[in-house]
Simulated assay, not measured.
Amino acid sequence: MSAARTVAVGGAVPYSIEIGPGLLDDGARLAAHARGRHALLLSDSHVAPLYAARVEAALRAARPDLRIAAHVMPAGESHKTLASFAAAIDALAALGATRDATVYALGGGVVGDLAGFAAACWMRGVDCVQLPTTLLAMVDSSVGGKTAVDIPQGKNLVGAFHPPRAVFADTGALRTLPARELRAGLAEVAKYGAIRDPLFFQWLEAEREALLAGDDRVLAEAIARSCEHKAGIVERDPLEKGERALLNLGHTFGHAIEAEQGYAGVGSDALNHGEAVAVGMVLAARLSAALGMAPDEDTVRLGRLLHALGLPIRLPAGLAPEALLARMRLDKKNLAGRLRLVLWRGIGRAEVVPDVDEARVLELLAD
């Protein structure tokens, strides 16, 4: 197995992110983070047939004393619900998981969010090891400890901060990732360049064809640089009181689109999370330009990169502007009922803008 790259996340609860091929088969590494005798391997109906048996076998070989149970949830954002959370809790109860148990989250962002939330709540908090299998989860949701489920009123409205004990991003898993999901992950990669790193943005423009082709070296570099950015921000602002909000560029718009479309199920025509965020970033850039904060040419450049990465950059048809705005009012960044958005001054210069005029947002959404 090739040597893994390691990104350290500091702060009150430090942990490491390991990036490289073959990590899902490295039982010694995975089991090193199981403090007790109970482990719940939580996955979904897409990922479990590909990797669950391998991970379980690796864990058992390294720790024969470990009692392992597998819980498989239906795949898709539409199943990131309180009902699925309850089923995960039932699985922990059936295992007899004690306070030193470990939950292994094997899958994409939906699995990672739900497994992390279940770990945060079982006996007021047990360990969670994130095993992301999608690019989006590797560079975003598996890092930082934000866990949640969706409710009909909005995305991620019920959750908790619960940092993982470790993150293992096995780049070999990206070989089985559908092309659409790879592109969705590239939206979150592009976000890091957009909010704080113009040179990374420029690198993505130069390497866009290699990224889309799934080049191992280029993807590993993109994952590591994205994780380094997020790790630094999370270390400085673990509970999203300030700088960490910048990671939500495009997300207020994107979450509203997802909620209004009913969340993308398996085989759905609705935008998935990365696609919705891509549209949301362009909307945020357009709003910034309309407010006189940023040059139009940076909006064009962002749209050009996202389009080249195979991502949508316009609102889907049939979404009512008033309904989207109502969803945006439920965003967790808002304060005192006033709209608070992440906008930018141009590529690499994002900022949180309080008290955004809703009329300007509505005008944008209706355009």
Rank of each mutant, 00 (worst) to 15 (best):
L291F: 07
A366P: 00
E363Q: 15
R349S: 12
V103Q: 08
L249D: 04
R175F: 00
S2L: 11
A290M: 09
L249N: 07
R196M: 14
V342N: 09
A115R: 08
M138I: 02
A12I: 05
A187E: 02
L271K: 03
R208H: 15
L50H: 08
E221D: 13
E322K: 12
G144P: 05
T176H: 13
A62F: 10
V9K: 12
Y15C: 01
A285K: 09
L212D: 08
A94G: 13
V282P: 11
D170A: 11
A259S: 15
G310V: 03
G337H: 10
I313P: 11
D237C: 09
D127S: 15
L92F: 01
D215R: 12
T6Y: 12
H71A: 12
H251V: 04
A97K: 06
G262F: 02
L95D: 07
A264W: 00
V55G: 14
F85E: 03
R314Q: 14
L135I: 05
K230W: 07
R349P: 00
A148G: 11
I257H: 05
D216Y: 01
D367M: 14
A8P: 00
A69L: 10
G318E: 07
V189W: 04
D216Q: 15
A57D: 12
T81K: 06
G154S: 08
M73F: 00
I68Q: 13
A91T: 03
H71M: 02
L330H: 14
A166G: 08
R165T: 09
E240S: 10
G348P: 04
P64F: 00
A94H: 10
